[in-house]
Amino acid sequence: MAEPALSIRGLTKVYGNGFHALKGIDLDVAEGDFFALLGPNGAGKSTTLGIVCSLVQKTDGKVSVFGIDIDQDFARAKYHIGVVPQEFNFNQFEKVEDIIHSQAGYYGMPLREARPRAERLLKDLGLWDKRKGSARMLSGGMKRRLMIARALMHRPKLLILDEPTAGVDIELRRSMWDYMRRINREEGTTIILTTHYLEEAESLCRNIAIINHGEIVQNTSVRQLLAQLHAETFLLDLSHPLETVPTIDGFEVAQPEPSQLSVSVKRGQRLNDVFTALSEQGVNVVSMRNRANRLEEMFVSMVEDDNGDQQSSSVRIDDDEVEPVPGAEVRQ
């Protein structure tokens, strides 16, 4: 049986201020998977991924990458990992191609091998024309793509993307999704993704884990997770405004706007019954959509349930769990 791309057992992290960021989590990500790690801010996502790529020191537990224990041979494990962090972490004053070539060099890849690889990646990601320019001149979306190109330079088998599309416009986000799907499908790269866009996880990922308060509260396939959804809310746009909210037996109906109805449909109920009842009352529906992303509804309900259990007694830390450097200024 093939070794999982990532295997985590009993992973614990306690920060210097006593904050228990991870409380002994177990996680497996199969080779070739497109995996989402979701959770609210401060839940432990970045800490988990930080430990896997050596930016955070674990307190306890085991982490293996393609069967290589990071405590035994982290250097060999690192060859398999490519990282796209949440925040820009390249020298803004360097040229784009220098950043890419340097990263290859850190992995021992000679320049004669790095150049064609960099050319291909920069062209694929639409940065070839910018290669001679300083990285600080790139737009936010281009900087994100630069970090993806940099992470792929040494041909990692496991790509870790920590909120790769944060702050990226819709068109660019879609093109990045296509690119990620392509490298997952065509090159077999295992991808682990954290994101706040649950639509992104639903659209891209096959399997999903939800982490909250340093514990894995759900670890399953996206399909199975969605099957657990007990009710979906649909928004119906009407041809004319209504003065009173129509009643439909067995359904919760609300009227957020005069020309719009919100209908909650539980599992086992039929949408046909809604339309039949509305037609009988002379209400004409011109369009319909989900009120929210289905996964988002599931995520919110899970995290809220978990928060209720925990009574939120633990210390919250900032989004990325990194202390800023006070009073510092940017210099070259």
Binding site: C53, Y106, A328
Partner: peptide, 16 residues
């Protein structure tokens, strides 16, 4: 400067 801009992470995640 590498620390401040976090580009030191480029080296830390590498097998160097």
């Amino acid at each position: 400067s590498n620390k401040f801009q976090r580009s030191v992470e480029e080296m830390m995640v590498s097998p160097m």
